[in-house]
Design a protein around this nucleic acid. Structure first.
Lengths: 111, 111
DNA sequence: CTGTATCCAAAGTGATACTG
DNA sequence: CAGTATCACTTTGGATACAG
């Protein structure tokens, strides 16, 4: 969670501070579906580096929108899932999906 | 507008490609309110450099979500406004605002 | 498999100067 | 006013190697 000091006055800026970047939004999109493992995410998010994926996950964990569960097995198994707070962002991703679909239709029908 | 080749298969990725970054989202937030002038935006978006603001506006113009109108007066007056396509993104920003407000309440009540 | 550490490249910022 | 251009600087990101 952000502290009061880090919290922007504007609600939109608050949300942007937490998920206002390409990779976090795409990670969120995946996790809204089901929990994912680290390498699964890495393979799915074409173009992301391991470092940035790790940094993004840590940051989202710190902000309280995802949880990290490590199972003590060999080889290690780590699952990332949405917290209730992360789950509550579903309407945002839904509206983005809706808009994206209609934009895709525009582009495809434009011929 | 994106071409068919630049268009991701995933609707969310499509939207992310167009507005999935901090500054574009904040510019969009401002323009949903009313048209803004260049320097007005520059002052409002604390921390953005002139270069990035210019680049962001050009990119959003190219993607068809904002319009740029230059009035031939001295001193020059340039207004940035939303196109209908940009206006159609309002639900996205609305859901972000809603979420941000409730997050702010969480942080402030946590004490 | 799930990372961390390191080094290097790329991108963003701030300041300043200059143009139409 | 609304930019473009440049330079020094900082931050971020990618590549690779390596560890538990």
């Amino acid at each position: 969670m952000l502290t009061k000091e880090e919290l922007p006055a504007c609600p939109v800026a608050t949300t942007v501070q937490i998920i206002g970047n390409k990779w976090k939004l795409l990670i969120l999109r995946n996790l809204l579906e089901r929990p994912w493992r680290f390498n699964e995410l890495h393979r799915s998010l074409e173009g992301i580096s391991q470092k940035v994926l790790t940094d993004s996950l840590r940051s989202m964990e710190k902000d309280g929108i995802i949880t990290r569960t490590a199972y003590p097995v060999v080889p290690p198994r780590v699952e990332y899932a949405l917290s209730p707070l992360g789950e509550s962002m579903r309407p945002i991703l839904n509206s983005m999906e809706l808009w994206g679909t209609s934009y895709q239709n525009m582009v495809n029908h434009k011929e």
